[in-house]
Every structure is written in structure tokens, then in C-alpha cells.
Design a protein around this nucleic acid. Structure first.
Lengths: 196, 196
DNA sequence: CTTATATATTGACACTGTCAAGTTTATGAT
DNA sequence: ATCATAAACTTGACAGTGTCAATATATAAG
């Protein structure tokens, strides 16, 4: 039992399949993510994943859950490195947000794709609140607009999310491709958020 | 040649395939959009589409192009019905934006999916500018922030786009599901845009 | 040691997109 | 008018895909 080579059991196939899936996602996009390729990369037959996930959708849901963990870590990681005033923290959160969206493009898109949102509603997995709470905390110190705290959160959340979607390939500004994530600080500044 | 029944030629297969594709998209989501099903719905064999589009990607590109046309029409349609002051016009544009995103969920997601953006870059089709110009015009009357006119446009564009993505299934506010498109007017108000 | 259960394999099925080759229809030149 | 050519569509095949049923193997329990 010391070496598991040539054994029938994999040991930790559940985890291996998730990792393989995220790898495939990063390498070749959503199109390259396949149940059979995940199995092959984990060194296992094509039908093995069925014993660990409820089909492809189950694996996708697990990958998305893992993605939200890393997503939260990306935001918190930037927050740790930033200055401790509210506006710097908010900028750092958004920087982590955009950094993750750019670094893990396909995964990010999968996480927020409509089919995944449907799956989550059915399974009520609710990984999002962790990531959302990070952003909520960053919005808390600011004065709220006409829609209360939820309005401020929704505004910042929509803004950074839309920015992430739109600036992937200079979609918005074909002429001048200066839409780096550094520019987002200026957009946040234009919101003229006031401390409470 | 008066009736084309039982004839070898379809007559307008190109258009029929696009229409069939959008129908399938609305009925069953991205998962239901299939080259073979489009062909079947158009009453034609499974390999016929290859003579009108460059494979599935070609059909998708055509569907996306059609989608952007309808997208622009949705925004312009709301603008026509609105009052003529700049802020009402901007609200109307966003209302059309969100209306289209909600009504054509799968199509909207396809339009802004990364793979489509890649395809457009290769083909340089550039249907987006039409829709973007509508939003640009609506932003023009307002004073610009630290990033100039492009910054204002990007801010509004990101905001409404992110809002559309996030409020599809009450993703943002699991507790209170009051994120109608009417609330977006309040968010726009909180931007405190000033006339130039 | 025997039994039982979780784990993985094999094989099959209905799909998918794509390609090559053949068939029918329309068009155009002589 | 006749024939050649091109366009439109069909047929058949191929490699992949997800999923299911049946099978084999390894681990665990009694």
C-alpha cells in the first residue's frame, strides 16, 4: 500500500479531476474542457468521473466552486498588500477582481455563465456569498446613495464586473487600447464616493 | 418555378438558418443550438449549412451579428419613446439594454462570450460599434471625469453591462429580489452625472 | 476466509461538427 | 437548343462527446 502505482484506485480522483478541468480551461478555453479529457489527464478511464460527480454538470459545478474560492483569495490577497484607508482597500479589491478575471479568463466566464447560475440555484451551493462579502465589506465605509447599502454594492459590483467583461480584448475601445486595470482606479474615483 | 416545393434549392437558407439558430437559442439556451438542428428546422440535410457558413463558428458569428442589430434596435426603440432630456435618454438607452439582455438571455451571453470576441477580432466584423455609438451619443451631453469622454462611456457601459450579467437570476441579492430594471435609474442617478 | 461495498473499466448508444464524394438544380456560353 | 459549368443540397463516413448498463477489481467488514 506504499505505492499506488498500477492499483485500481486512484486515491484522490475527485480532486484530480477538478485540477485537470481547471488546467484544460486555462489551456484551451471552455471548448477544451471535456469529461473524457479530464479523465485521461487524471490517468483514468472515460467513465470514471461519473462515480465522483453527477455527470459533466457536476464537474462543472465543482470547478466553479473552486473558482470562487480562488476568486476570493485573489481579492483578499490584494487587500492585504494595500494601504488601509477605505478607498485604497476598495481599489485593491477591484484590482484582485480584475486580475483574476484576466488571468483565468475561461474559468471566470464559466463562473458567471447563465447555465452555472441555474445549476447553483438548483443545488443551492452558494459559494458566491463568500466573494460577495469581501466586496460588501469594502463598500461598507462609504455613504450610501438612494438605494442604500445594497445599491452601493450593486453599483460597484456591476461596474467592476462589466469592466472585466468588456475590457478583455479591447472590445470597448478599438481605437485606443489603454484599458488596463490601472485605469479602473480612476473610474472608481469618478464615482465620488464619500466616507460616512 | 412558381412554387418551390420539393425543389432542391431552399431559396433563402442563409436567413432561415440564422432565424432557426436564434429560435433554438431562445428556446433551449446555448446547449440547444446545434448545426444539425438548425438544418433540420430549416428542412434541409445536416451538411447543408456548410455551403452558407464556415462551420458552426460561421453560423454563430452570423447569429451574433444579427443579435447586435436587434440589440441596437432595442436601445433606439426605448430612446424614441422617452423624454428628450439627456438623463431620460440615458435611462432609456439602459432600459433598452437591459430589456434586450433579459429577453434574449442566451443570445446576449453568446454575443459577449470570449469565443465570439475572438472570432470577431479575426474576421474584423465590427458590428459592436453601431450599438456602442448609441450609448456614446447618450453619454456625450454629460461632463467628463478624469478619463475624458471615453471614461464616462466606459463607466456607464461597464455599469449597465455588469448589472445585466449580475441581475439575471437575483445572483447579487439572494435575500431581497427587487433588482428590476427600474432600479437601474436610481443607480444612474447615484453617478451624479452633470450636464456640460 | 467470505462477503459486501466502493471504485474503476469496458462497451455500447445517440448525439455532435466536419469532411469527401455524389446528385440534383440552375446558370451561362456557344 | 445543347452542353458545360457552377452552385445548392444530399449521403455517408469519421472522430469526438456525454451517458448509461454491465463487468471486473480492490478495499473494508464480519
Amino acid at each position: 500500500m506504499l505505492d499506488k502505482l498500477n492499483t485500481h484506485h486512484h486515491g484522490n480522483l475527485h480532486e484530480a479531476l477538478i485540477v485537470a478541468g481547471i488546467e484544460l480551461l486555462n489551456e484551451g478555453g471552455m471548448h477544451a474542457l471535456t469529461l473524457r479529457k479530464c479523465a485521461a489527464r487524471a490517468g483514468v478511464s472515460h467513465a470514471a468521473p461519473a462515480h465522483h460527480f453527477d455527470g459533466l454538470n457536476g464537474l462543472l459545478a465543482a470547478i466553479v466552486a473552486r473558482g470562487f474560492q480562488q476568486f476570493t483569495e485573489a481579492m483578499v490577497g490584494e487587500r492585504e498588500k494595500a494601504a488601509k484607508d477605505p478607498f485604497s482597500i476598495l481599489c485593491a479589491i477591484c484590482r484582485g477582481y480584475l486580475k483574476f478575471a484576466i488571468t483565468n479568463e475561461a474559468l471566470f466566464n464559466l463562473m458567471f455563465s447563465p447555465q452555472m447560475q441555474d445549476l447553483e440555484d438548483n443545488n443551492s451551493q452558494r459559494e458566491l456569498p463568500d466573494a460577495y462579502q469581501v466586496l460588501r465589506d469594502a463598500c461598507a465605509p462609504f455613504k450610501h446613495g438612494s438605494n442604500g447599502a445594497a445599491g452601493t454594492e450593486l453599483m460597484v459590483w456591476s461596474l467592476v464586473h462589466g469592466f472585466a467583461q468588456l475590457t478583455r480584448k479591447n472590445r470597448v475601445h478599438p481605437d485606443k487600447h489603454t484599458t488596463d486595470d490601472t485605469n479602473f482606479d480612476n473610474i472608481l474615483r469618478d464615482l465620488k464616493l464619500e466616507l460616512v
